[in-house]
């Protein structure tokens, strides 16, 4: 079941992951009914949200949901047709010009011919109180690549250079657009641990991602957007709960009967194929407890996390959830 709109509004007001301090102080980022269109397409549609001080917020959505446009609006690279944006208490352009923002764009190319260290040094020089060069390189794991030309690095190494550029100025607000898109699981983990190492330096982090598990692991709060609109705002578990009925479990259960499995609480569907049972449930905890209590012999149990696609369909498909 998806939550009624009133529940979503409730999270916005009282979401328990937002600290009291963050609510009292001025937000680091504030969008008020912002709309941005490209011809016929409305990329961002009356979008309103805030990022409080000290918060790490994930902007979660499928490709084309409007995440990149939202970040570019916050950076002043785009201008909204309607609505207002405040970044660190200033206009987006003013916040960038003052050196308060560090950004890693999704498609931020690197200049041909530049060496890693001189590029980081150039960017350090633009900010008032940058990290030391060696600190910037170390945070991105680039010490051994300092003298290499950026156009001769692998895609993953180039992504680390982009991270070093975003962190070098010790910005108050860090904006990352799909920073781990091209990374394998191990690289992703080390990327986020590098970001965590630099957490003390800043007042806010907003990152776009299409991975629910990434949002869950890293963010204090998740903003889910679909077709440019905010469809959920809360902690990752709240968003997952809002997307209810999408968790799945699969296992081997020799001799289990379909009727018994279908009668388990909260079960939405059961499929038995090749001796393996796949079950979708609205409340996985209840279903699995009942399954084990029923005496059914269960082997090789696998739990599948709720899928973002399902969550988005659930959340954005409900007209009342759109307000």
């Amino acid at each position: 079941m998806s939550p009624p709109a009133s529940d979503i509004r409730h999270w916005r007001a009282t979401g328990n992951s937002r600290s009291v301090i963050a609510m009292v102080l001025e937000p680091v980022v504030k969008l008020s009914t912002v709309t941005r269109r490209f011809g016929e397409v409305t990329a961002v549609d009356e979008l309103s949200f805030e990022v409080g001080r000290g918060e790490t917020v994930a902007l979660l959505g499928l490709n084309g949901a409007g995440k990149t446009t939202a970040l570019e609006l916050i950076l002043g690279l785009q201008r909204p047709e309607v609505g207002a944006i405040s970044v660190l208490g200033r206009s987006p352009g003013g916040a960038v010009a003052s050196g308060g923002v560090g950004a890693m764009l999704q498609r931020g190319g690197l200049p041909e011919g530049a060496r890693v260290a001189e590029l980081v040094e150039l960017v350090r020089g633009m900010y008032r109180r940058p990290l030391r060069l060696d600190e910037s390189l170390a945070l991105a794991g680039l010490e051994r690549l300092a003298r290499r030309r950026v156009d001769r690095l692998s895609a993953g190494q180039q992504q680390r250079v982009r991270l070093a550029l975003a962190l070098a100025g010790r910005p108050d607000l860090l904006l990352l657009d799909e920073p781990t898109a091209a990374m394998d699981a191990a690289t992703r983990r080390s990327f986020w641990s590098r970001i965590a190492e630099s957490a003390a330096e800043r007042r806010g982090l907003l990152f776009a991602t299409h991975r629910l598990e990434e949002a869950e692991e890293v963010a204090d709060r998740v903003l889910m957007i679909s077709a440019g609109r905010l469809v959920a705002d809360g902690s990752a578990s709240e968003v997952k709960r809002a997307a209810g009925g999408i968790a799945a479990v699969s296992f081997r259960a020799p001799g289990a009967s379909l009727e018994v499995l279908e009668r388990l609480p909260a079960v939405e569907s059961v499929v038995i194929a090749g001796g393996r049972v796949s079950m979708r449930s609205g409340d996985l905890d209840r279903t699995v407890r009942a399954l084990l209590a029923s005496g059914t012999w269960v082997e090789d149990l696998e739990v599948e996390s709720p899928r973002l696609e399902d969550a988005l369909v659930k959340l954005s498909g409900e007209p009342e959830a759109r307000e």
Binding site: E72, L77, L105, G108, V123, M126, L165
Partner: peptide
């Protein structure tokens, strides 16, 4: 995208 990256810097 390097020009956009430059515009996102002071």
């Amino acid at each position: 995208g390097w020009l956009a990256q430059l515009r996102a810097m002071p």
